[in-house]
Design a protein around this nucleic acid. Structure first.
Length: 208
DNA sequence: AGGACGATTAACT
DNA sequence: GTTAATCGTCCTG
């Protein structure tokens, strides 16, 4: 007792194709240390970008932007797995992703929704919204968990880091579902319809 | 240099 | 169902 190790997920969990990681992340716990306190939530919805090794995904920043070459923004996607890719969009929202796959290929998983577990009372906008609306969307959960551009390129596997993924609960395959990704706008087929969004069936906190 | 657009959200009709 | 908010990034010229 007293020296219990946290089951922080190691890099090999993330060093797989994004679709595999996106499915495997359902039921795991996103943990944030904030002023010495734990804030956490169970991951209930994800999306994979650049799903399969070697395949193109024109919805993925790494493939769509700059002809598939890195830019200052997308560079971390081309690096090692287990790193946070956090970007700013619509002039007001932060998106939290985890880099997956091998080096030199751009792939990541977007975390789209959480079920709050710990520290809900220190999540941003607690009491300003119904609990369900704290973390039921990618921008909302980033805000609730105080994730910003300052977290971009952080290593989620760093033993001393303040943000990481912990082993959670096993979700039976029958309790999960997948479908097309949300908000892809002008992304062409077939990527527009690829079923690379994963969620927990019936979970109250899934975005839609 | 300038414009289009976005892995969203909230607030409308 | 539609649309405004709001600004960094990327592309075009």
């Amino acid at each position: 007792m007293g020296t219990q190790c946290q089951t922080k997920l190691a890099r090999n969990f993330f060093s797989r194709p994004a679709t595999e990681v996106a499915a495997a992340l359902l039921g795991q716990t996103l943990v944030r240390r904030c002023e010495g306190r734990r804030m956490s939530g169970m991951i209930v919805e994800t999306e994979a970008y650049c799903a399969a090794e070697g395949d193109l995904d024109l919805a993925c920043h790494g493939d769509r932007v700059n002809k598939g070459r890195p830019t200052p923004r997308t560079a971390v996607m081309f690096g090692p797995a287990g790193i946070a890719y956090v970007y700013f969009t619509y002039g007001m929202h932060w998106m939290f992703n985890i880099v997956t796959g091998a080096d030199n290929q751009a792939s990541a998983v977007l975390i789209r929704a959480l079920q709050p577990l710990e520290g809900i009372e220190i999540m941003r906008d607690y009491r300003a919204r119904p609990d369900r609306e704290l973390t039921n969307g990618p921008a909302k959960l980033a805000q609730a968990m105080a994730i910003t551009g300052a977290d971009n390129s952080r290593d989620l596997c760093d033993p001393h880091g303040d943000i990481w993924i912990e082993l959670g609960v096993e979700i039976p395959l029958l309790e999960t579902a997948c479908g097309s990704r949300i908000g892809l706008g002008k992304t062409p087929e077939p990527w527009l319809s690829m079923p690379w969004r994963y969620w927990m069936k019936g979970n109250h906190f899934v975005s839609r």
